[in-house]
Amino acid sequence: MTVDPSAVGTVLPATTMTIDAGRLRLFAKAIGETNPIFTDEQAARAAGHATLPVPPTYLFAIELENPDPFAWLADLGVDLRHVLHGEQRFTYHSTAHAGDVVTVSPRITDVYSKKGGALDFVVKESTLTRADGSLVAELQSVLVVRHPGAGK
């Protein structure tokens, strides 16, 4: 079943969370980040940060905090066994830090097909703001949905 292009414009549930210093350290370690500003409070302060800054790409993980972060895909009729994460893009406007309360607000901005309908692409754009409304970043992800047997 192909993804219905009428999904474009769908606003998905927002996620709000407080950025935890311990989770930032674990994430930095998991991605192999060796710069101490991401794991050591003193190093972060010496570099001009109030506390630990968010490591690169961490913002993508915030939406995964939802109890069922892929429910929106299932609502579109997508079989999760055939989904591939195709692309991720970040536009940073300010640095988030441990202790910041942030909200990610996603929406579907495009749906298109290639390979004679064998592949659907779902583009999701998200804005990430602090509790005071200031913009932290804009994220864009492209998910690829395979349709086995289609387009042959």
Rank of each mutant, 00 (worst) to 15 (best):
F70K: 10
S134L: 07
H147Q: 11
A30M: 09
A131M: 11
L119T: 02
I19F: 05
D20F: 04
A61D: 02
V54R: 06
Q42T: 13
I19N: 05
T127S: 15
A74L: 12
I31S: 13
L143K: 02
R45M: 09
E41T: 09
F38Q: 02
F60G: 01
K29W: 10
R89W: 08
T18Y: 03
D100R: 08
P69F: 01
R81G: 11
P106N: 02
E65H: 10
D40V: 05
A118W: 00
R107M: 11
D20I: 00
E33M: 09
F38Y: 15
E87W: 07
D79T: 11
V78R: 14
A118T: 01
H49Q: 11
V136T: 10
L64C: 02
P55T: 04
P55W: 09
P106Q: 08
L24K: 09
A28D: 08
G86H: 11
S6H: 10
K114L: 06
S134F: 01
G133K: 06
A137E: 10
A46F: 02
I108M: 11
A30G: 05
E63C: 01
P56G: 05
L119G: 05
P106A: 02
G151K: 06
T103D: 12
V83H: 01
A14L: 09
V123G: 02
L139D: 04
F38G: 07
P69T: 00
P69R: 04
E41Q: 14
D100V: 08
G32K: 09
K124N: 09
L12Q: 07
R25D: 00
R23W: 03
A21W: 00
L73E: 14
S105H: 08
G149L: 04
P69K: 05
K115T: 04
E65R: 13
T51C: 13
P69W: 00
I19M: 13
V11T: 15
P53T: 02
D120I: 00
Q42E: 14
V142H: 08
Q88S: 09
A47R: 06
E41R: 15
W72Q: 11
T10C: 14
E65S: 15
L128Q: 05
Y112Q: 11
S94A: 15
N35L: 02
A118Q: 01
V8I: 12
F60Q: 12
L80H: 01
T15I: 13
P67Y: 00
Q88Y: 04
K115N: 06
G32N: 04
A131P: 07
Q140D: 00
G149M: 07
D120P: 07
V111I: 13
P106V: 10
G149D: 06
R23P: 06
D132I: 08
A47I: 03
T127R: 14
F70W: 13
A50T: 13
T95W: 07
A98R: 10
D79L: 12
V142G: 08
G32H: 07
R81D: 14
